[in-house]
Every structure is written in structure tokens, then in C-alpha cells.
Design a protein around this nucleic acid. Sequence first.
DNA 1: GCATTAACCACAG
DNA 2: CTGTGGTTAATGC
Length: 227
Amino acid sequence: MSYCKCLDCDNKFCAFGILSKSEIRLLCNNHAEVKFKKNEIIIKQGALTTNVVYIKSGIVKEHMTGPNKKEEILQIAKAPFFLGIHSIFSDRVNHYSSTALEDTTVCFINSEILKKLLKSNGEFAYQILMYVCKDQINNFHHCVNKVQKCLHGCVAETVLYLADKIYEKDHFRLSVTRSDIAGLIGTSRECVSRALMKFSNDGIINVNNKHIKILNRSLLQKISEVG
DNA sequence: GCATTAACCACAG
DNA sequence: CTGTGGTTAATGC
């Protein structure tokens, strides 16, 4: 039997750890690992969905061009993460695009094989379902928050999100532009710039081009909560 | 009415 | 890609 490198993969999503050796081999024979550089498109809105993409390492954005042809950012996420898993049982095309924000390593996994595993291994399906549900809940919260909070609340929330969930540091270098942040919260890049500038002048954060440092976390949280 | 908020535009580093 | 200033429309008090 040929060597299966998936068996030794140390970047496995927890659900993959549940699979048996033969299931891993099946996966291995139907996947391809690809590296993407910053700003390369991983999946394109409108293209046919033949694979689910598992992000092994890196940071990506999911974005969708809406009816007025303006682009909105759905989510900024980092590994471990799935792209296109929602599309697996829906249409034959991707409903949104995904672009690497940092150098990213992904695995393309054949959709049919993944479906097969979901059918045959209940525990695996359970883990994947849990993942999809969590992702959905996050999106619901994001959706409601961005509609109800006003500008400063949205920007404060985004800064906290980036610090806590993406970079996991209070001092980080942005891998997104201000336009990206604007697209994420449904505002204009000018407003994001002004809000960051205001926070900076008020001593809540330190802004130096792409570098952001949180100085007064409790106040930032307050602004995020009050909106 | 007047103040505030935020979007849009144009222009400049 | 960003920051700034001016303008305008909508909304709140």
C-alpha cells in the first residue's frame, strides 16, 4: 500500500482525528495540498464547487459581490477553517469567494468523498455538523451586530475580534486594508480611518499604519458593547 | 430648527 | 492604500 501523508499530518482538524486509517487513506487519495500567497484567490464566486477547502494554516477572507456589484466581506478567519463546506449540499457553484490574506496552506478535498465519509461515519459527521453550526451562529451574531451597532461600536468590535480571534495578541499587524474592515462592517473606508484615528487620539489604541496596539481594552470593550 | 452621524466625493501624500 | 476636508442626507432632541 502506498504511503499516506495524511496519516502524519499534524494540522488535522479535530474531526479528521476520528477517521479510521482506511478512511484517512481514502481522503488522502482524493485531496491536494496547495500553498497560496497573500492576496491570491482560493475559491471564486460563481465557479463550480467540486471541492471543499480545508485551511491548514494562514488567514483568509470570505467575500461576496452583492446585487449592486459592491463587495462585502463576510468573514475574516484563520486556520483551522473550512471554505465552501456550506455549498456541499446546495448549488453546484460557489456563493462567495475566498482570498488568502497571509501565506496560506490548504487542502482541497473532493466533495463526493467528504459526503461519503459524512454518511458512513456518524461521529465524523457529528463533529463537522458542530463546526458548521458554530460558524453559522457566529455569522448570525455578526449580522445582527453590524446592523444594530453604530460605527464606533462596529470598529471597536472588529479591533477586539482581530486581537482575540485572529492574531491572539493586543499588538498586531493588520493583514487587511481599511477597505476590508469597511466591507466587513458595511461602512466606508473613510469612516474606518476616522474611527481608528479617534480611538488613537483618545488613547484607547495606538495606530501606526498597519500596526495596532490596544492600550485601553476595557474602554474598547465598553464601546463595542454600547455600540 | 439645530446638532449629530455617516456616506460620498475629490484630492493629496 | 490612507488621511483629510467639504458636502449632503437622514435622524434625533
